[in-house]
Design a protein around this nucleic acid. Structure first.
Lengths: 339, 339
DNA sequence: TTCAATTATGAAAACGTTACCGAAAACGTT
DNA sequence: AACGTTTTCGGTAACGTTTTCATAATTGAA
């Protein structure tokens, strides 16, 4: 029972193929009567148009790519799901690809697009500091950066972004720590040199310190890579070289929780001996013991905006735009008030 | 700068289109000399064959679908990533789709395949108890069930599966609880009526009870839906109607962690007052406080096997097969020894 | 009724590949 | 040199759509 094609349907319905095509694509120039009849035949024989043929003719696909930077990460995992849901509802497919490798995030995107003839690309995370307007234009499809840092030199009409203000969020987090009486504040971050999200959050930390006249101490820093393990290791080192800290700011919840394990293993308690604040507000944070104080990113909204922008642009109803969502400190029980 | 096609390359290389096609597809019947020359031209002009045209001609795609049952779930999220990695390495794309809806998991798969002309489908979770051999055959593509329960009546040559023995794993978990001195053991599961994973794990629990001559008590059960929230709610109810339990077995780590929160809020401690054992061994478990004792599923291996089977079958090097991985109880600190 | 304007339809030419088929070229054997 | 084999190659017909173009059917105005 081979699959029917448009010709078969045309014959079955007693019309020409172009009429069937018009019905499928909801063109207006077909008589209501014939439209209904053709639709019935399509229904009856369960005909599904061949996507490859359609894509070939139209020279495009209905696929949008999601390129994810880095290893497994619950925050991105959550975003992917919401994006896919919305994309799929609008008739698009999500093709996901994890870009584990290094720094050429834009090249990865480009290859991805060319190979799969994608209609658009969404990047989750990644470092685009070297990105140029030219490169974006060469991509040739709507390009959205989500949950990353946006280089300022870029022409903002060429792409969309949906992000948070990482510098401010980090600043607020350590300010909150300060308000709770903490002055010796450790930092578990992911970078200090580049222009990545981690570095920007580090800058927020630094600004808050300066603002409250707290001296910056090199031995209060350590670096991980957005995983439980590396958070654990970073904290272990921190405990060794900075045993006087009363609080630590980890720039991701998973690192915060990794760090917590190191704290417990060192015989200290949270928050009695060391306070800790995370970043992201993954659902695990609320259920951690003690419930983790953290800066909340509206994942769901970020994901939905991202998808909606892509859909809007693809449907020609939207131009590129740049959204920055507010973050919020969710106060739970991992921070002690020092008075 | 429109994209080049195979004809352009043929002209540029001074050969026929079929020769270029042969080079692209690594056919053997082309002289080494010409092959090299054509390859150089392809390289030079950065030519990428049009996938739609190729798929149309070959009447197939290079896409394999991943259909995921239920809402966001860190266990599946992790599997998706590993499967995608491997699939992508072998030249296939992963098209993911979350099948939130009800029970017609096979219909979802079928529609998915037809619409996207998928080369194969992998289902993560889902309930296939109503599935028939006929339906599988009608799918027409390699079909792999992962991390779910496999109905016995099915002809095992028609599909692959990679699973664990849920009944035994659950049985082992509560047996371990028994060996640690527990006799009043609560259960947080997801179902008791159907043929789902949850029900099978419930049966393992029941068998262990019987084996150790522990009376089954209806008020020791409660039901959630694989989320933190529902685990929390289930435990809250359990605490109300069964305040004498000394341990609880949650059939997923996220429900266990949700349950833990309810336990803490009731003023009890883990494991001093109530012991808890989870299922899955998601990475949260190791980093939870206290580290959660749980039954470990080899996610990575399950994912890799799943992908490898799909690739093997697609490349005609493998037949359908059925793998069941061993689980293992990871003893951490959420269980008290009652003596 | 007649003609122009509009609407509805079908035929056929693409879109960029692959694969079949036959022919040319290269090779070996006598 | 003549022949049969084998290797290498090019022409071309599909694959199932969409879209353009021409034409047939319908409508409206005179």
């Amino acid at each position: 029972m081979k699959n029917l094609n448009i010709k078969d349907i045309a014959k079955l319905a007693g019309v020409g193929v172009s009429t069937v095509s018009r019905v499928i694509n909801q063109h207006t120039d077909v008589k209501d009567e014939t439209r209904k009849h053709v639709q019935e035949v399509i229904e009856k024989y369960n005909y599904i148009p061949n996507n490859s043929a359609r894509n070939l003719k139209r020279n495009e696909s209905m696929d949008v790519g999601i390129l994810i930077k880095g290893m497994y990460n619950p925050f991105f995992a959550r975003m992917i799901q919401s994006i896919e849901k919305r994309l799929s509802f609008a008739g698009y497919s999500a093709i996901i690809h994890y870009n584990i490798e290094g720094n050429k995030d834009i090249d990865a995107a480009n290859e991805f697009i060319l190979e799969k003839k994608l209609k658009g690309v969404i990047c989750l995370g990644g470092d685009f500091d070297q990105l140029t307007d030219q490169e974006i234009q060469r991509l040739g499809v709507p390009f959205i950066l989500a949950s990353t840092e946006i280089p300022e030199k870029l022409n903002r009409e060429l792409f969309s972004s949906v992000i948070i203000d990482n510098e401010k969020a980090a600043h607020d987090a350590v300010t909150y720590l300060f308000e709770m009486g903490h002055k010796k504040i450790g930092l578990i971050t992911t970078g200090i040199e580049d222009k990545s999200v981690g570095t920007i959050r580090t800058q927020g930390y630094l600004r808050a310190l300066k603002e409250h006249h707290i001296e910056k101490r090199e031995n209060y820093f350590d670096v991980g890579a957005y995983t439980f393990d590396t958070g654990y290791e970073a904290m272990t080192r921190l405990l060794g070289k900075a045993d006087d800290i009363t609080a630590v700011f980890a720039i991701s919840d998973v690192m915060a929780i990794g760090a917590a394990k190191a704290i417990y293993e060192s015989g200290k308690r949270i928050p009695e001996d060391i306070s800790i604040i995370g970043f992201d507000d993954i659902d695990y944070a609320e259920f951690y013991n003690p419930p983790l104080t953290t800066v909340h990113q509206p994942v769901e909204e970020i994901a939905e905006s991202t998808a909606d922008i892509m859909i809007g642009i693809l449907d020609d109803e939207l131009k590129h735009q740049h959204i920055v969502f507010d973050t919020e400190i969710i106060k739970r029980n991992s921070i002690k008030f020092l008075g």
